[in-house]
């Protein structure tokens, strides 16, 4: 995977992953706190089940507070569901205006492809909260990269 420095690409992001599991189960994992708590935090970050709110209806809230395992630092994030079509589509919009739309595609062999399409990505940059969060994220990322390359 290479990073591109193309201004055309800064608006939208697509993330694709194939899972060895049926579509209904993958969709359930993305919408049920008892599943989300197992994987929502990236490496070194946890999301206790009491920190996850899923109000699974259009207009309902999707809220998480991830916790850094080492420092205890918290990373709250919030979205409002804009589209819920089990088990094929799940979409939410963040307060910044950035939209996340996930498609769940049945590959017909017991596997499921998830395609996350993030649009209006630069809206992330407009809100002071997002900028503050991003600065600390970037700092953490720089620290993480330093540990990977040293």
């Amino acid at each position: 995977m290479t990073a591109t420095t193309n201004a055309d690409d800064l608006d939208e992001v697509t993330i694709v992953r194939v899972f060895a599991a049926p579509r209904e189960l993958v969709f359930a994992c993305m919408t049920d706190p008892t599943h989300l708590t197992h994987f929502w935090g990236p490496v070194g970050v946890s999301t206790p089940i009491e920190n996850i709110t899923v109000d699974l209806r259009v207009g309902g809230v999707f809220e998480t507070v991830m916790v850094n395992d080492e420092s205890g630092e918290t990373y709250p994030s919030k979205g409002v569901y804009t589209e819920i079509t089990p088990p094929s589509v799940l979409a939410w919009e963040e307060p910044s205006g950035m939209a996340n739309r996930s498609e769940f595609i049945d590959l017909g062999d017991g596997r499921t492809e998830v395609r996350i399409h993030q649009t209006n990505v630069p809206a992330m940059y407009r809100s002071p909260e997002a900028q503050a969060g991003m600065k600390s994220s970037l700092d953490r990322f720089a620290t993480y990269l330093a540990t990977q390359t040293s």
């Binding site: 800064l10 993330i15 197992h38 994987f39 630069p122 991003m134 990322f141």
Partner: peptide
């Protein structure tokens, strides 16, 4: 432009790690 691409890469990294954990959970 690196600042923007850094953020996008960081965002991608989060989803990659998240999905690694989801694979294990599944």
């Amino acid at each position: 432009l690196d600042v923007a691409t850094d953020w996008i890469e960081h965002n991608r990294q989060i989803w990659t790690e998240r999905f690694d954990k989801l694979s294990a959970h599944l």
